[in-house]
Amino acid sequence: MKNRLKVLRAERSWSQQDLADRLEVSRQSVNAIETGKYDPSLPLAFRIAEVFAMRIEEIFLKG
């Protein structure tokens, strides 16, 4: 699943570690999600949406 995590993070000048701290996950998790190697669970997807103050479908894209 594609996502806009890297762009959204860059817009806020956050490092992967900054985002990981906000999500309370490891930096490896953020990297794996960003690169599309790992699709987060629904609860984590909701946390990501909450951190960026956006809807899930605005962050994660089909295909």
Binding site: K6, A10, S15, Q16, Q17, R27, Q28, N31, A32, E34, T35, K37, Y38
Partner: peptide, 12 residues
């Protein structure tokens, strides 16, 4: 399959 822990890391 998932690469090293540091691969693709972006500390910017």
């Amino acid at each position: 399959t998932f690469g090293s822990m540091k691969a693709g890391a972006d500390h910017s």
